[in-house]
Simulated assay, not measured.
Amino acid sequence: MTQKIGFVGLGAMGLPMAANLLAAGFNLTVYNRTASKADPLVAKGAHRAVRAGDVAHPGGVVVSMLADDASVKALVTGDDALAEHLAPDGIHISMSTVSPATTRELAEYHASHGSVMIAAPVFGRPNAAQAKQLRICVSGSAEAKAKVKPILDAMGPEVFD
């Protein structure tokens, strides 16, 4: 697999999730506020981005696993404006557990900027993420969900629509 994807958020959940994508053969560019958290992935072939927006390219796919609503909002609409970097037709897979209101707001923001958001919160703890045993709930357009299914499958055995 040579698809290029970006990943933002390499904490206790994000690091093993990103490692599984790298192991599955994806060409991965990663970003974390604490740059050293990317070191294990870079040692295995991932590319390190200097800024969060640098993980995205027009028409590409970016996965985020961040702590809360505010962090996801800042990624999508802030200085790095992920929604704009992905346009046209790029997909943001938000795997954080955030409020339904934030999900709707960010999906609308993406749409207004020519990109798409897939909400894909996960069930599982860091050990489940490491073992590729996450349960993933996904919502968004059918076309976008079909495009990202191989990415989700690399992180867990069950994807629920």
Rank of each mutant, 00 (worst) to 15 (best):
G60I: 10
H110E: 12
R104F: 06
G60P: 06
A49I: 03
Y31N: 00
P150C: 09
G9S: 08
V122N: 02
G11H: 03
A74R: 12
I93L: 13
T77I: 12
D80N: 08
L106S: 08
P157A: 15
A146L: 09
A142T: 14
D79K: 12
L21Y: 05
M117D: 09
A19I: 05
A49T: 02
K132R: 15
M65L: 05
V76H: 09
G59M: 09
T103C: 10
A46S: 08
I5H: 03
P40E: 05
V138H: 00
A70Q: 15
A38E: 05
N20R: 10
I91L: 03
R104M: 13
V42Q: 10
P16L: 04
L22R: 06
P16Y: 03
F26Y: 06
G78H: 13
A154G: 10
K145E: 07
M17E: 01
L41S: 09
H113Y: 03
A19C: 09
A146D: 08
A49K: 00
T34P: 02
S139A: 14
L21R: 04
M65C: 12
D39K: 11
G11Y: 01
A142H: 09
P58Y: 07
L152A: 03
V61L: 12
R135I: 15
T34C: 10
E105N: 10
G78M: 13
D68Q: 09
G14R: 02
Q130M: 11
P88V: 10
V72R: 06
A38F: 02
N32C: 08
L21E: 05
T2N: 15
A101H: 07
T103M: 08
M155Y: 02
A154D: 06
M17T: 08
V8F: 01
S64Q: 11
A56N: 02
Q130H: 10
A101V: 14
F26Q: 07
V8Y: 00
G60Q: 06
A38G: 12
F26C: 07
A49L: 04
S139N: 09
R104V: 15
S112Y: 05
S139T: 14
H92V: 11
M13G: 11
R125P: 03
A18G: 08
R125L: 15
G14W: 00
A24S: 13
N32G: 07
G6R: 02
G156W: 01
N32I: 03
G124H: 02
Q130S: 13
A52Y: 00
P150H: 03
V50I: 15
V76E: 07
P100V: 10
N32S: 09
A81S: 15
G9T: 06
A107E: 13
G114K: 09
T97Y: 05
V159D: 01
P157E: 14
A38K: 04
T102F: 06
V62L: 05
M95T: 05
I93Y: 01
K4S: 15
N32Y: 01
C137H: 14
H110R: 07
A129F: 04
S115H: 04
A144M: 03
G78E: 14
K149E: 12
F26H: 08
D153F: 06
A24W: 02
S94H: 12
H92E: 07
G90E: 04
T97C: 08
